[in-house]
Design a protein around this nucleic acid. Sequence first.
DNA 1: TTGTACGCGTTATCAC
DNA 2: GTGATAACGCGTACAA
Lengths: 345, 345
Amino acid sequence: MPKKKNTTFNDIANYTGFSKTTISRYFNNPDSLTLENQEIIARALIDLDYKENKVARILANGKTEFIGIIIPNLNNHYYSEMLNQILLTYEHFGYKFLVFIGNENEDSERQYIQELLAYNIEGLIILSFTIPSKELADLQIPIVTIEREDQYVCSVNTDNYMGGVQATSLLARHNCDVLIHINSPTAPEIPAYGRIQGFLDVCTEKDLKHRVIFRVLGNTYEQMQENLNEILEELEQEYASQKKGIFISSDTHANVFLNLLIKKYGKLPDDYLIIGFDDSPIAREAAIPISTVGQQIDKIAYEAVSLLVEQMNEQKKRKPEPLKEPIHKVITPILLRRDTTEKAD
Amino acid sequence: MPKKKNTTFNDIANYTGFSKTTISRYFNNPDSLTLENQEIIARALIDLDYKENKVARILANGKTEFIGIIIPNLNNHYYSEMLNQILLTYEHFGYKFLVFIGNENEDSERQYIQELLAYNIEGLIILSFTIPSKELADLQIPIVTIEREDQYVCSVNTDNYMGGVQATSLLARHNCDVLIHINSPTAPEIPAYGRIQGFLDVCTEKDLKHRVIFRVLGNTYEQMQENLNEILEELEQEYASQKKGIFISSDTHANVFLNLLIKKYGKLPDDYLIIGFDDSPIAREAAIPISTVGQQIDKIAYEAVSLLVEQMNEQKKRKPEPLKEPIHKVITPILLRRDTTEKAD
DNA sequence: TTGTACGCGTTATCAC
DNA sequence: GTGATAACGCGTACAA
């Protein structure tokens, strides 16, 4: 490395006549120096253009202030906004983030984790879902997961059940003849399963005619369009002239469905009510603003980092007491009524 | 730190009877050991459950393999997708990324840069635009900017001029009576200014009636709606019964404009052609798929990291030759014709 | 209040 | 092919 070496504590020590220790103290415990000496050192820092070297500090005291993140992608608005909010917590907590895209490959995600551990990260936030929480727990490092299977680790999730209840209740209030929930096949251990359970429970409780349609809707707009069009045709046949309340698993899908209806009828027909999930921008920006269940991403992000910081602080104690049971925090979603449910009563 | 200490080269050395040096060589130059000894060490690594410590390695050889990123936000799809693609280059180049959200505050961005430098990052990718490139160049560290003022530093940008030409030419080919370009006020030193220049040049060259409308459109959907509605009313009055070709600065704005038309007419009237910019998801997912100029974000990201890696490699030579002139790479955009321009000729 | 001496875990430079 | 030893830059007992 032929770079002009940065000035070190040694240089400052020589320059000022103090010892390295005193320089170190200037940074970590300035009150233990006289004000005069503080000023002398302060001036030396400027004269020598000192720049701190955190790597050396880490090696010496073990605190990296790094948090690792593994996130499936950033195409999905939910993930990019979550990452956005997580990164913003730097202002509050001061932790820096090393981010990896998980691309849904179990082995490469394991490799990412190893890489992160090699950098002595203090904690890990996992949004990808390939690695079982049992394995994550075995890493023996503070972990928080968000919106994924979380049996053995701490987590922060949206109250999906409540969201399902809210959406379904809203549709029910509009006296629909039949309630439809469209979703991808979902395992019960995933938090998002709560949306389905909420739907079913409300329908059962209120004795409403209902149906859940599980179907893989695909990843491209074209695939979604095709699959949702099939579903639309089925509904048109099955429930012609009935008022249909449709709760769709995401705003993206809801928008596709809405566009299909607009293409077919030039508007949203009176016998269709639609509500999505997530409060993605697309819900607001759709040709007809779509009602949705809004996840409080900012709160989820803050709670996740906060929960992680607590664990990390515990680790730094002389006698850390690991949690006996993982903590699962739950953030209530917010119902957003827009034009796809509010036009007709 | 009462954590059970990780095993170190020393432990392995003791366990195997070799010296620390040999252990180090096993990792960095394995061929210099006999196969037997390699296996002995390999076994010891497993027995002792060795985990590499990159922090120590950094301190010793100065190579962090860190790249810093400062990005304005992740709400905007362009930024989140760019970050997505940048992070994915880990697979190819092996560099890890420390990401900060710039929140458009010059001072806090300076602080982020200091923090990044304290971690000995090897290079910096800047997408935020508050700090002048002159100041960035003075950091004396490899830098690449993306789509911002870039006079004194290396950069990768979309060929905005070409994009403007493509969009305008497409509208011109459809024999519009008047071409309109709607944009925010844009400084000429910003790459995006090229879109305006491209528009103007094509109009001038082909002697087309045209107009550029500069207006701050706001940040919320409601603000955009209000401002674009005003513009729409102006256009309706000024160019009634004329065929209007409208080139809007972003897909988000184009979608708002389209929705206003749909709300007013129930469809996209024949005397309106619309083309946006970016190829955001919203362009494809709009009620009527919107023609747009697609930025090749994956290529831009790859080129940016690639350009940075070149500079970083140069830095590692014994006698680095800094670039005399910053390199500015330009990526050609791709015209995407969709329904908002292709329905009528 | 300040200084000494050593440790953190690895790499680099010489020797052999 | 292998080993001893000195960096790398900072923190921290312990001593003064």
